[in-house]
Design a protein around this nucleic acid. Structure first.
Length: 454
DNA sequence: TTTTGAGTTGTTCGA
DNA sequence: GTCGAACAACTCAAA
């Protein structure tokens, strides 16, 4: 057993490069990098999210040259015990801003209190740590565009330099913990993207050099491969947004500007959650709408058999890939909230259970935006039409046919209207479970009633 | 303090 | 088929 001056407790910063907490830890002597499989987070995560974390941890251990110490248990017990075990006098972390993680950190700090072990926070998963961007009245922004301007004006630090003279040490991992990781890899029901930092940076370089130019025009097209596909890496901090922003700074063009704006959305929603933690589970702006329990219709939505092709393609893409195109996330979310009249947390939970990029703040507030309860006082009349949205953003029907084999016999855009084709239902595609025009009227009527209620 | 302009991503209808 | 107007009222941000 080699003693370590510091633990580097990794959480949403599972990388080596551009890592301020690693740099800070390295300055103080030998470093033990560790990760805690927290049953509160891990055990109920579902096989897809567990699988992606497991693959990421396996790659992380390689990135740290096999030095990653993995333990299973409550961090409030595990971290102080590990620090004692290796004689560490400091625990270095990146600041956790999400309410659940922040509460966990408070418990761990309390457990370290009597131990003469210092807690050091350096950096966060964001270019600008949530809470730093304030409006002229000193309060938080609740509208995206002014936030985005203020965030860009504020700017961010350059990427952290690679620490010199880094000396990593090893401590025994909990064998049960690695067994759980291996089991999660085996049990993962979907094909995962390549995990780890090398894969993330390669993906970024490819997108930056080849995809960014067409990003502004293609990002809304689920039939094309026009997005960066970096969200699963950003979720665990395998790549830091500041790394991307540093690359984007010198780049002109609408694609680069648009990509910066998309990163700003991630920061905006983290900021909104920082100032409104209860918005993770309830309406940011309670409207007093009447909601339905969609019952069996919820299962049809979940499994992709609503009879609306682009909705079903999206829901099946989610189950098959652990990922769904952003445009289709909005269409499917609108369908659940406006056509089936469900309360948004029911859908948000399903997304979070199946997305490998499931980010609590972005997912929740994406849903709240669609439902009309979130930021952006949404016009009441914003109800997506799943048919025209499909025809507009999947104009050749390629996306639908890719994920809905029952519609592969329908050419071009006709895949969006099987009811209009003589043989539209020949391969067993289900009939529409609701009439969109009627449910749109119902949704508008509910908004009207909520508005008139005292 | 008051006022003014704006608010990611839409749909439908009628000319 | 294309295009502009209408679709509530409200909240937010900044001058």
């Amino acid at each position: 057993m080699v003693e370590a001056a510091s633990l580097l407790w990794l959480r949403r910063d599972l990388r080596r490069a551009d890592h301020p907490a690693l740099a800070a830890a390295a300055e103080g002597g030998r470093v033990l990098p560790c990760f805690v499989l927290d049953p509160d987070f891990f055990d109920d995560a579902g096989p897809v999210r567990q699988g992606w974390l497991a693959a990421t941890l396996t790659a992380l251990d390689e990135a740290y040259d096999g030095h990653l110490c993995l333990r299973y248990g409550d961090p409030a017990t595990v971290i102080p015990a590990l620090a004692r075990e290796v004689g560490a006098t400091r625990v270095h972390v990146s600041t956790e801003t999400e309410p659940g993680g922040a509460a966990r950190d408070r418990r761990v700090r309390a457990a370290l209190d009597g131990e003469a072990i210092e807690w050091v926070e350096t950096g966060s998963p964001y270019a600008v740590t949530p809470g730093r961007i304030l409006n002229h009245s000193g309060g938080p922004y609740r509208v995206f565009t002014p936030f985005s301007r203020a965030w860009q004006d504020h700017g961010w630090r350059a990427p952290a330099a690679e620490p010199t003279g880094l000396h990593l040490v090893t401590a025994g991992s909990d064998p049960v913990a690695w067994q759980r990781v291996d089991a999660a890899l085996t049990a993962c029901p979907i094909a995962l993207p390549p995990a780890g930092e090398r894969a993330a940076l390669d993906r970024w370089a490819e997108f930056r050099d080849e995809g960014l130019h067409g990003y502004d025009g293609h990002r809304d097209r689920p039939d094309l491969n026009g997005t960066s596909q970096l969200s699963p890496y950003l979720k665990f901090g395998v790549v830091h947004p500041r790394t991307l922003l540093a690359d984007l700074t010198g780049l002109a063009g609408k694609g680069a500007q648009r990509y910066v704006t998309e990163l700003a959305w991630r920061e905006f929603y983290a900021d909104v959650v920082h100032h409104n933690p209860t918005s993770l589970t309830s309406d940011l702006n309670p409207l007093g709408l009447e909601y339905d329990d969609p019952g069996g219709a919820f299962d049809a939505w979940r499994e992709g058999r609503t009879g609306y092709p682009v909705v079903d393609a999206g829901m099946r893409q989610l189950l098959a890939r652990g990922w769904m195109h952003n445009r289709v996330r909005m269409i499917t979310a609108s369908f659940l909230t406006k056509d089936l009249h469900a309360w948004w947390p029911q859908g948000a939970r399903h997304f979070l259970d199946h997305l490998i990029d499931g980010d609590l703040a972005s997912n929740t507030h994406g849903w709240q935006w669609t439902a009309g309860t979130g930021t952006d006082a949404a016009p009441y009349f914003r109800v997506f039409n799943p048919i025209t949205q499909g025809e507009k953003f999947d104009p050749d029907g390629d996306y639908v046919r890719r994920y809905v084999p029952e519609l592969r016999h329908l050419p071009g855009a006709s895949a969006h209207r099987p009811w209009a084709a003589a043989d539209g239902y020949a391969d067993g595609y289900p009939e529409r479970i609701v009439d969109h025009a009627a449910e749109r009227e119902e949704a508008l009527a509910r908004y009207q009633r909520a508005r008139n209620r005292p």
